[in-house]
Design a protein around this nucleic acid. Sequence first.
DNA 1: TCCTTTTGTCAACGATTGTTGACTAATTAA
DNA 2: TTAATTAGTCAACAATCGTTGACAAAAGGA
Lengths: 191, 191
Amino acid sequence: MDQELKKSGKADRTRAAILAAAQKLFAGQGYELTTVRDIAAIADIDPALVIRYFGSKDELFARAAVFNLKLPDLSRAERSEIGETLVRHFLSLWEGENANGAMPILLRSAASNETAANKLKDIFAGQVLPALARAGGRSGAAERAGLVSSQLLGLAFCRYVLRLPPVVGLSQETIIREVGHTIQRYATGDM
Amino acid sequence: MDQELKKSGKADRTRAAILAAAQKLFAGQGYELTTVRDIAAIADIDPALVIRYFGSKDELFARAAVFNLKLPDLSRAERSEIGETLVRHFLSLWEGENANGAMPILLRSAASNETAANKLKDIFAGQVLPALARAGGRSGAAERAGLVSSQLLGLAFCRYVLRLPPVVGLSQETIIREVGHTIQRYATGDM
DNA sequence: TCCTTTTGTCAACGATTGTTGACTAATTAA
DNA sequence: TTAATTAGTCAACAATCGTTGACAAAAGGA
């Protein structure tokens, strides 16, 4: 068998099918309500294969929920455009072409799954906070990061998990303008 | 037996114990992970009694998650203080003396429990939106309500469910000032 | 006291869960 | 073709879930 150039073997295709089914279900109903049998049914394979290829439901979830913030370097952006830049970045991450839906997966399961909750914590404490610390004023980085996180996660929670009609109805332009303004104030304004 | 003046009979005390245990567990780990047997263990009674007194786990959850927004009449408040007024109101509802923890219960279970999700939707679409429509400008009430909801729910989600350290660390004064400012702009600012 | 109602105990049910291991079928290397 | 590796199938496991019904204990009224 080829060592590096695998020609998308049969096993790889079922692996991909399982992962896709898992992401769809995890995003739609969370970790607890998603069963291995449901995943297998959607992927049209045997439930035992889910375990064989991913070890356990937990490991499959971990694989399905990976995502990379890829935060832009805020210290190089125009200081007056940090807010809009951040909001644009998150929106394209959540709704853009390469969106993989990992954010809804994490958000929906974070309330009852410790793995998901910790992943979210790591992201916002380990990436958003440092980025704001570099970009914003010298003090109160933790406060600013907390406020920014509450607004961004709240937007995602209402729009993708709860699907609150007034939030789903917001246009991207409105979000960029209004939420961008808020983030801008949190990130750089005086406290 | 007395018809109206029940002297806190034995049954009432166990009913209360069950409800208290249920609220504690529902708030801490959500609907799915909370088992009838866990509730019974904390209430120190038999699991069968949980069903006998509340019919089913679903009905018990509905009882444990009732709460009343009791929104103040924003049209009578100083227009320039709507933001702070709203944030103060929610904070005292969530952390004040009479806080019953129903908000964390709803938020934590909303991601995987339709009953909880619908209850949250009803609250914010049926109470917050009308209140803002009365108080704010004549147009764009839905947009304003969506933005306000995203910030308020995001704050609660980060602070009580996810327990993001930077958000937990925010003082009430900071929240009232900063989030109040944001809500004020969403509620009354031009869009 | 006796009788009725209330309150609590216990064991078990059927369903569903993640996971396993033995087995067959298909694919590949020789 | 033959042998070996890989992929997929199937039935079953142990555990846990919400829920039920039969029964015992306690309390209250007569």
